[in-house]
Design a protein around this nucleic acid. Sequence first.
DNA 1: TAGATTGTTAATCGATTAACAATC
DNA 2: TAGATTGTTAATCGATTAACAATC
Lengths: 227, 227
Amino acid sequence: MQKNNISNSVIRRLPRYYRFLGELLNQGISKISSRELSEKMRLTASQIRQDLNCFGGFGQQGYGYNVAELRREVGHILGLDKQDKMILVGAGNLGRAITVHIDFAKYGYELAGIFDSNISLENIEISGIKIMHTNKLPEFCAEHKPSMAVLCIPKSGAKDMVKTLIELGVNAFWNFSHYDIHYDYPDAAVENVHLTDSLMTLSYAARSKQEYSPECAPEGDADITEE
Amino acid sequence: MQKNNISNSVIRRLPRYYRFLGELLNQGISKISSRELSEKMRLTASQIRQDLNCFGGFGQQGYGYNVAELRREVGHILGLDKQDKMILVGAGNLGRAITVHIDFAKYGYELAGIFDSNISLENIEISGIKIMHTNKLPEFCAEHKPSMAVLCIPKSGAKDMVKTLIELGVNAFWNFSHYDIHYDYPDAAVENVHLTDSLMTLSYAARSKQEYSPECAPEGDADITEE
DNA sequence: TAGATTGTTAATCGATTAACAATC
DNA sequence: TAGATTGTTAATCGATTAACAATC
């Protein structure tokens, strides 16, 4: 199904296609052309056809794409129709929010266990799952063989935790810490969520807009705002 | 200070520079060359010099970059040394986690108010801030003039909420909902955090690795894994 | 000064867009 | 069939890397 070497840019657009196709389906739209979809998604029809054709010819000349079928295909490419076990490590505010907020089953994962190194959290339930102490990880992983871990722990503890998890067979990480897993384990599947990086990017966008907005703009050349 | 039209690719690398420079500083390293930094960050020295030179010549030939000074400059470019008020809308699990987890002051923002449309949450305190009902927004914004809002609300309510906030003078959004703000307000500063998109991307990476891993690889050409 | 390393221009690479032939 | 729209190749655009002259 998947051809070799699909570029990261293409992969990162797939979830968005998947979402939009889901919405179209909810709206009862069963057929769509690349041009119509491009208008809804604000990208070019060309790009949509290129992207989809990395994985196969899902459309039909003169007709377009069947929404339900295309969504199923994209979901399949993303692996959402599989079923794997995963764990979450770090039951702080962020870990608890993700546990409650994300419906992992929709993405082909079963949240099988929650772990924290803080012994006082042991046996507390979140979303019906009891928090276990991290010293239970070897036993748990041997039994359930989770393939993915969500890391909601500080950077300081992350390096050792990842080492442990890799040894226990976990090879995919949804990483909310700032520890750079790929540096030490280039073969692991890693998706970093750097919330503060995102906030800083927004800060840049918001504040450069401030500078250039008409009310605040200084007289003369906007380039030379430096003192 | 900032030249025109810095590409988004460059901007998105700045927070990472900022983090790495902070670490170097913590380690007591006061001077670094683009080559040394490139090894630590796993990117090319050329790119580092190109990126930084979009904003000015922060280095010195034959010497390198002063870590403390460069960090200050990058922080300044990102606007982290400013101070603006902001609000958070949606005090569910995610909203509460972000309130507690993110130190907004570090990024030049003061979390001035938390809002929720659920009346039963009113006056509950998170991180010392009392949740207010969303009907208090007009009054609050008139008084405090927040420039940014964190949106931790479902997509269904997001469109109306953004319309309200835009009218109240908020023009930057850290958007955890799936509502596409830029579609309706192309001039707003928007940073989307699509957690489930990130999870799907990880799913793809994790599962295509599974397919190609030595233990599970089928015999013959790996390209033709389709039945 | 000589050595090192930046700032900056030129070359390369990859991703996006445009064009069009294939075909439903 | 004629019209529409895909799949796919070619052209363009932008981002990254390499090279080197400037200079500390």
